[in-house]
């Protein structure tokens, strides 16, 4: 791949150093993430009705997945959710970070406010929004009825429920991504702006020509992290909709969770689904990464 410039011989300590630096992390990581993940792949080739007794079935679990309506329904819902979540998260976190980066009064206050939901436990988040969005008795519909807007079935209609789930996801996580973008904004050298101002560039031009391009690596981080979060969403949805109405918000992780831990247990099938999920997200991340690298190179 890239060995052309390694010709110059480095002193031993420089050659050894990187391995020592990565060792502690990689050790923990190998034991508690990589090895179990490989094990998981292994399990996907077996059938297990209790998570302990295994019968080898080869690719049968994968075949079953491909012909399972519930799996495809979860896959579709996951893609819809993840795409909306990533796009909205990226746009909103950049926009809000730019606002929060201005010289305004109460900036620290606003930052804290937007971050607040991040620290809430997902269970509580699901619970609270469940009360708010309840059709007959929810806080939101109580208000809407009063001003004559009727009672939308937020959690009763499939499409609306998906919207609600995406909204609550954003509400809960956006503060974290704003923080990342803010850190990125701090990394942009102010001399660029000074130079631009001297050339008479407007704020809009500065935003287009300096801020956004220089922010791209950080934005990439947000895209990748939100992509992963989008594909992993589960716990607050579990409390909020339970995956309903009739499966409309059952995402992949819930599908896996139910197969792995709820009767009827299909542990191997769950493992196969998680392998599929993993490969999908890995491929997407890799694309992102390679794309980002090409940009870096040019």
């Amino acid at each position: 791949m890239s060995s052309a410039h390694a010709r110059r011989v480095k002193p031993w300590n420089q050659r050894l150093a990187p391995y020592l630096f990565i060792l502690p992390n990689m050790l923990i990581f190998g034991l508690f993430v990589v090895y179990p993940a490989i094990n998981n792949f292994n399990i996907s080739l077996y059938d297990s009705r209790n998570g302990r007794d295994f019968t080898f079935v080869g690719g049968a679990n994968y075949q079953e997945l491909l012909s399972s309506e519930a799996f495809w329904s979860a896959a579709r819902a996951t893609v819809v959710f993840a795409v909306c979540f990533v796009v909205l998260t990226t746009v909103l976190s950049v926009a809000l970070a730019l606002l929060l980066n201005r010289r305004i009064k109460g900036r620290a206050f606003f930052r804290t406010v937007f971050f607040l939901p991040v620290v809430l436990s997902p269970v509580v988040v699901g619970l609270i929004w469940g009360w708010i969005f309840d059709r007959g008795n929810g806080l939101l519909n109580t208000v809407l009825t009063r001003i004559g807007l009727g009672q939308p079935g937020w959690l009763v209609d499939g499409g609306l429920a998906m919207t609600v789930v995406i909204f609550v996801g954003l509400w809960m996580h956006i503060g974290f991504y704003i923080l990342i973008i803010l850190a990125g904004l701090q990394g942009i050298d102010p001399t660029y702006y000074e130079a631009a101002r001297m050339d008479g560039a407007t704020s809009w031009q500065q935003l287009r020509r300096i801020t956004l391009p220089l922010l791209r690596p950080t934005t990439m981080v947000v895209v990748i992290l939100s992509l992963i979060a989008g594909f992993q969403a589960f716990d607050y949805i579990w409390t909020l909709t339970g995956g309903g109405p009739i499966g409309a918000t059952t995402l992949m992780v819930q599908y896996i969770y139910e197969n792995a831990f709820q009767s009827p247990i299909r542990y191997g099938l769950a493992a196969a689904a998680s392998v599929v999920l993993f490969i999908t997200v890995f491929a997407l991340t890799l694309l992102n990464f390679l794309y980002g690298r090409r940009k870096e190179a040019t």
Partner: peptide
């Protein structure tokens, strides 16, 4: 190694729960 790190970001604990527990 970096790709492995990147790849594993997307493995939620939910998915590999039992193997991790066995290791622990």
């Amino acid at each position: 190694l970096f790709l492995v790190v990147l790849g594993t970001i997307m493995i939620p604990l939910q998915l590999i729960f039992i193997p991790v527990y066995q290791m622990a």
